[in-house]
Design a protein around this nucleic acid. Structure first.
Lengths: 346, 346
DNA sequence: GGGAATTGAGAAACCGTTTTACCGATAGTG
DNA sequence: CACTATCGGTAAAACGGTTTCTCAATTCCC
């Protein structure tokens, strides 16, 4: 740590032989002056390694180039990609992100919120681990704009969610297109909005009679569900769409243990594309990716627009999910699908 | 979003019938005045909902109550608990944390670093996913203090790491104490400092002849290693200590598939206490927890001390790991161990 | 050639606090 | 009673920039 005196605009002005006002205008490309003067100031600033004090600047400009990211997803499975996207979208605009982890603790949330407002954030992005739950703090009536990403906000808010129905549709359609006739959906608790959205889309494609099994979001529920399906005297499915990758992993493991070939006899598709689970499954899971990083990027762009006073329509914005093919599902078709992607990209 | 005019200290002063200077001093418990005046100012401030503008304050105090957290662990497995700890230690001191994800990208790192320095952070915590790798940016000679947490820094830096050797020792000793005679260590690539540290400690307890198998950090390596041990004509171990939970999960799965009872015939211990892996394993994994959240807390405390100019000894601080007992290891002993913990806590 | 418009730049005000220096009034002292 | 401390509080100068206003010197126009 070296306490080098920071160069102030005053120093730049003195060295360049102009007033502080002129220096400021030169560096910000505002005001009027000879192109020569402007250039000279800029050069001396660069030579001196001048970097404006962001706080001083914020004080006059009423703009801190800082936003707050409020999340209750301590575990970070959903929040992390969102954060990465937000940060990525903002860093080259010179905007920094305050991270505030609040674990469903209203007092803690309030503490963080106040700290951020005191620090004059230009906006707040609220994000959570569940699309149909609100953070434990009221963010309406704040003096700064708010964007809700992957968490529920007021009706008139700017909200970003991933398209559960479309993702489920893609998965189910893929199973159908690759010749699977008898489909089942094994998913989480009915109380989750995303569960009913996905189940609805599944039924719309697979037929209203198609079976949907609700349980917990765990591997063990995947095992249990397979036990139910295989040990009972119900007809066995040849295509299984799971509500998340953990359930899917449980399902694949259970099938292997019963000697059922995946994807030979049964295709399995998961949801979330949680690398660590999807890639470690044997065989690796075909799954739905919610594009959370892109969701984060979009949230970053929106909060920036709002902070700059640009008009942004309130309402819910739905971002599409993407099917990610791996071996748990119709091995042969993968090449074709990927080829299609490659062609689209080129 | 409601653009309510923010109350300034000027307003408080006017309403309380004092000068701005007096108001400031009253609110900060500095200067001299009647206790009555101080109280009156505080009350009107509270009544008006006055919150000081942190930027204006930072400008005079040369202290922004803001720190930066630089990390190259995009995936977040190690960083997330550290972040949570840092944040927790700082939030009630009014310090906010800038999150900067830099993915081994030197230019990006520089960008974030400059943005943070411009914003006058009081300090920087550098953290990574690997204890023996440096971030792609030089943080020495900065005008602010730096603490390195779970990543390598210069020799004279303040550095925090978890005690790999002690953790490995605890695991191995536990295996030995619970009657396991023939121990093996299945771990990651030798190029990792933590691997050699853990392997060294393992050998120190298990005997220099004890076998150590190096591979990748994956479940599949766990399977492979078990194949090597069980299919060869080498003596089979009855206690396996793994370099991380993923390997351990692979090991447990492979043993189950071979009909080997865990923990009946073989005890397995992992490393990392990565809930999602450790808890989903059948049986759940006994493992070593690196106490990363506490490491984060300590990093927060240290950077705060440094920011306040308190003296902090440079050098490497080692934080102990903790054995977390689950069913993959000597079921009977768990009650006893946990009872001991409960007694210690009370 | 004289008045108006434009140009280039600087002085000063401002952003919202904290802090230093100062000042009148009261209290204490010999 | 004159003489100094102490007390309670204020005015003004920072902090490091941006922005508005002003102004002298030029250029333009008829």
């Amino acid at each position: 740590m070296v306490k080098a005196e920071r160069i102030r605009i005053y120093d730049v002005a003195r060295v360049a032989g102009v007033s502080v006002a002129t220096a400021s205008k030169a560096l910000n490309d505002t005001g009027r002056m000879t192109e020569e003067t402007r250039k000279r100031v800029k050069q001396t600033a660069a030579a001196l390694g001048f970097r404006p004090n962001a706080m001083a600047r914020a004080l006059t400009q009423q703009r801190s180039f800082t936003i707050g990211l409020l999340t209750n997803d301590t575990y970070g499975r959903f929040t992390l990609p969102v954060m990465a996207g937000v940060s990525e979208a903002l860093v080259d605009q010179g905007v920094s992100v305050f991270l505030c982890g609040i674990e469903d603790d209203a007092a803690l949330a309030r503490l963080h919120l106040d700290a951020m407002l005191d620090k004059q954030v230009d906006g707040i992005i609220a994000t959570g681990k569940r699309i149909d739950r609100r953070l434990p703090v009221d963010l309406s009536h704040l003096p700064v704009p708010v964007v809700y990403a992957f968490t529920e906000g007021p009706d008139d808010a700017v909200t970003l969610v991933s398209d559960d129905a479309q993702g489920a549709r893609e998965a189910t359609e893929w199973l159908a297109q690759t010749g699977r006739m008898s489909l089942v959906h094994i998913t989480g608790p009915e109380s989750f909005a995303s569960v009913t959205a996905r189940a609805g889309a599944f039924r719309a494609v697979a037929g209203q009679g198609a079976q949907v099994l609700h349980g917990s979001w765990s591997e063990s529920w995947g095992h249990e569900a397979i036990a139910k399906l295989w040990d009972g005297d119900v007809p066995r499915p040849d295509g299984i769409f799971c509500g998340n990758d953990q359930i899917a992993r449980g399902v694949v493991d259970a099938l292997r243990e019963r000697g059922v070939d995946v994807p030979g006899e049964v295709s399995v598709i998961g949801f979330d594309n949680w690398e660590i689970v999807a890639a470690a499954t044997r065989p690796p899971l075909t799954t739905i990716d919610m594009n959370l990083k892109e969701l984060g990027r979009e949230a970053g762009r929106l909060i920036l627009d709002l902070a700059e006073g640009k008009p942004v329509d309130p309402g819910i914005r739905t971002l599409p999910c993407k099917l990610v093919l791996r071996q748990s599902c119709c091995g042969d078709a993968i090449a074709v699908h990927n080829q299609g992607e490659a062609l689209q990209e080129s």
